[in-house]
Design a protein around this nucleic acid. Structure first.
Lengths: 243, 243
DNA sequence: CTGTTTTATATGTACATACATTATAACAAT
DNA sequence: ATTGTTATAATGTATGTACATATAAAACAG
């Protein structure tokens, strides 16, 4: 039998299985080098699913920019490899270390709170379910420059007694077997409100870089909701993108 | 008849038309506030296309993060908007169009200037070489929300008499055979200085999102140096990353 | 040998249909 | 009142089918 195949009895949707297989398939050297994939009809036949279903899977990869379709020619791996790559998977502390900046934790506060509406939506939990909230102020030894607030999905299983001085994602991976693989971020500018201004030792109303971060695990399930307020000039966000 | 309808004889694919209509539709206040869209069957019927086809369109918006689906509850505009994976290769105007926001150009100013040191370095040109500087203020019809400054490398061959109301990269590609393929960006927060505050009609010192953008062509040669000052709350920068 | 036309093939578009799953609502039983 | 059950309505999954369209390659004409 073929190396790649689909289990019609699995609870996992066929298109999801197909998507997975495709992801594996296109790792193969030939495809990475630009070889066209088997045609849709062919592949559908081989996987014993309908072309429509297979198409769903391919579509997703095309949307993601991993595959490129061309009529008559076929489908192949996108050559210019869009993956923004930007090493923004480093944790804050790792990132700072890389830049040679020693980091100090000024404050660390952990509590259980009732989620607001936004959180209920993102985590998709019941309103009465308590979630773990972590606040911390970090920065150079001489001056704080970022105020973080993190909320963790109950699923993660944090108790609040963990050692939060360790790199966070390392801990989640090792102790809780949760691997953060996807993050969506929104970056904007805000004026420092009083309470935050105080924490960062700036005057109220001064500009801050504000980053919302939505973190997901492999199954695209929400894991963490993170807010970061960065003192202006202390932090620059860099993005590199190709097309 | 309904305000929204689809032309079955148009050469434009039905799913593309439906996508457009959806984009318009969800601009309506109710939907922005979280009202559920008409159900798929209902909408399909109203537009006189099949549910499958309609679904294609909705899928796209869902993938972009504009819509959220929930079984039994229905489909609605993403509230906390973990929005748009939108590959940031869209120009400003294209992006706004996509979101159904009409754009107005408030000011447009084009001059030839002597480059400062940063520019000399980036463009790698002689200090006496003049470069084209373009300034523009853009925003909603009722309020400006971004101030752009662009400098173009002499190689691009702009004269200053071009029609800068067209999408910029489109023009560069068609008229000047220059394809921008790589951009490096730095995003930070700054306080609005007087001259900019005036242009954006905010008070001096209020927070702005500041974006520096270095744009290169295929040969990684510098093309454009772009500064953007975005009024806080008017613009959110989204980044999606996987590992 | 070179330019043109045809043909075959791959993706693109579109529909009708069926059943699965899930969250809410309505209702009944405790 | 709370809990459990059932109906219902929405999206989710999946198939089979048909024809359109673009284009690379083959066939052909000059």
């Amino acid at each position: 039998m073929n190396k790649y195949s689909i289990d019609h009895k699995s609870p996992m949707p066929l298109h999801a299985q197909a998507e997975m297989l495709l992801r594996q398939l296109i790792q193969e050297e030939d495809y990475q080098n630009g070889k066209v994939l088997p045609s849709e009809v062919e592949l559908a036949k081989k996987l014993a699913i309908s072309r429509t279903t297979l198409r769903q899977s391919i579509n997703k990869l095309v949307f993601e920019g991993l595959l490129v379709r061309k009529k008559r020619s076929g489908t192949r791996v996108a050559q210019n490899a869009v993956s923004s790559k930007s090493n923004n998977w480093l944790s804050f502390s790792q990132e700072m270390k890389l830049r040679g900046i020693p980091i100090r934790n000024f404050e660390l506060h952990v509590t259980w709170v009732t989620p607001d509406e936004q959180l209920i939506n993102f985590f998709d939990i019941k309103p009465d379910r308590k979630v773990l909230k972590m606040e911390r102020v970090r920065g150079r030894p001489d001056e704080p420059f970022v105020y973080f607030v993190s909320y963790f999905h109950p699923r993660v299983g944090l108790t609040g007694d963990e050692d939060f001085k360790r790199p966070l994602y390392e801990m989640l991976e090792q102790e809780h077997h949760i691997v953060a693989t996807l993050s969506k971020e929104e970056i904007s500018a805000v004026a420092a409100e009083a309470s935050i201004a105080e924490k960062l030792r700036v005057t109220s109303g001064s500009p801050l870089l504000f980053r919302k971060r939505f973190v997901f695990d492999q199954g695209e399930r929400p894991i963490e909701y993170n807010l970061g307020y960065y003192k202006a000039n202390s932090f620059v966000y860099t993005v590199e993108s190709t097309r």
